[in-house]
């Protein structure tokens, strides 16, 4: 509700995170509002009046202390709800790795992104791979694995409309997944400071319908490009 009013939700799990955000807002909002209400009402109610002494309460009396103890119950319950939901979403996005129908390689370096698409044969690391700079092409409604690596320092592959973020670490290849649900062109940002050009590492993700995407792959495969050049 809140997040999708601010930006589009373009992956299968974006809605889960939107929902989680709303639930947390509600569950911390209620205690916050109650606490603030009491806070302000006490300030107004107990303003100093001439000649009136304050009460003497030590905070060990059962009649007062029970209110503080009772407040723990909802907080613990809310905490448990938040943990359960958060862990669920986390499991789905980061721990679980569903079967993919295609895989892309994402390579970060100071200060650009290279994307390796599998090409017409849909297999990575073959001669027909398509490498692009700062532009990732994917098809909607297709489950992708990404293989994320970095050539120098830490970067972070962040696609806000997917609600996806993952650090890229030199010397490691990190695998994750996403499944776009709508078409369009969106931002990819780098979300880990990586030096002077950190603010200059924008890339685009272009989500196309499967036909459009197939056409793009066809046109840009190294063979097609070579043939074009030969003409």
């Amino acid at each position: 509700m809140i997040l999708d009013s601010l930006l589009p939700s373009a992956s299968t799990y974006a809605a889960d995170i939107n929902q989680l955000f709303d639930v947390i807002t509600l569950l911390v909002g209620i205690p916050f509002l109650v606490a603030s209400f009491l806070f302000f009402s006490f300030i107004f109610r107990f303003k100093a009046k001439g000649g009136q002494k304050a009460m003497y309460i030590t905070g060990t009396e059962h009649q007062y202390m029970k209110w503080i103890h009772r407040a723990h119950v909802p907080i613990l319950v809310f905490d448990v709800i938040i943990v359960v939901m958060a862990v669920n979403v986390w499991y789905r996005v980061k721990q679980d790795l569903p079967e993919a129908s295609s895989t892309v390689r994402v390579i970060a370096q100071q200060w650009a992104w290279s994307f390796v698409h599998p090409g017409p044969d849909n297999v990575l690391d073959t001669a027909d791979d398509i490498t692009t700079v700062n532009e990732l092409h994917v098809a909607a409604n297709t489950l992708y694995h990404y293989k994320l690596e970095s050539l120098d320092v830490l970067h972070n592959f962040s696609v806000p409309v997917f609600r996806l973020k993952q650090d890229a670490i030199p010397g490691r290849i990190i695998t994750g997944w996403f499944e776009p649900t709508m078409t369009g062109t969106f931002d990819i940002q780098c979300a880990e400071i990586c030096g002077i050009g950190h603010g200059l590492m924008p890339a685009k993700i272009v989500i196309e319908s499967s036909e459009q995407h197939a056409a793009w792959v066809e046109q840009n495969s190294p063979f097609a490009v070579a043939a074009l050049a030969a003409n």
């Binding site: 997040l3 955000f21 807002t25 911390v28 939901m85 979403v89 996806l164 979300a191």
Partner: peptide, 14 residues
Amino acid sequence: IFLGASGNDIYMHD
């Protein structure tokens, strides 16, 4: 609390 909830922090981090 928003940030401590791991699933939400995927989006909120940084």
